[in-house]
Amino acid sequence: MTIDAEKLSAFLDNELDAEQTKHVRQLLEHDEQAAALLAAMVMVDERIYQHVEQQQQIPMADSIHQLLAEHQPAQVIVGPWQKARQLAQRHLAMAASLTMVVGLAGGLGLAQMANPNNDRRIAQAVEQVLETQPSGQSYPLGSTLTMTPKLLFKHHNGQYCRHYELENQQQQSITTAIQCRDNGTWQTVASATRFQVMVNEGYQTASSDQMLDPVLDSIMASAPFTEATENAVINAQWGANAAKEESL
């Protein structure tokens, strides 16, 4: 007795009616060839499913999330330093894995993300934290902003630079930025803002921790300062005494 492949296939998918299902079961009890073919079909489905699932584990292109995001896509804003700008443009374009829309808007700086009326006040508050506070702690800037300095390091050109995050709870965004100290003021080298995005079946605000890694890699002269070194530099007010910090 034989059974056709169509019925076996439909049996596998539970698409047969009760009578046909019963008939197939009876045949499978003594038709080894049919049982082997059914097993092969099961394995075919399983291999395809596993293959698809494996591919499914690969993170989806972020451009797809951006396409469906409710908010505007992130902008990477790169400051006026020619060298840093060139490096950032090249590296960030490559890193757009990350799906950031890479833009060059020299001079707009961090303030673009905020209410224009508050630009100056926020920028001053950010500079105050950069100037006086060590990394690793969070500092509230008003009711909706929280700033967290991440790193202090030296640029190849000798300037001190800081990497930090600024979370805007109202806009549900995180800006990560690098500013470097130039003659007593903090100039924005690069910044990028990520808004809340949908990932798989839920929402989350993408971590911005690594967004500027390519820029950091390209401008850091050496490893970030230790906590003790940071404190020494800050306590020395970035001045003459700071020259000693690297020996600490």
Binding site: T2, I3, D4, A5, K7, Q33, A34, A40
Partner: peptide, 12 residues
């Protein structure tokens, strides 16, 4: 995955 020709089974 098939040890013998599946043609032994009729296709619809």
């Amino acid at each position: 995955l098939t040890t013998s020709s599946p043609n032994a089974h009729q296709l619809g």
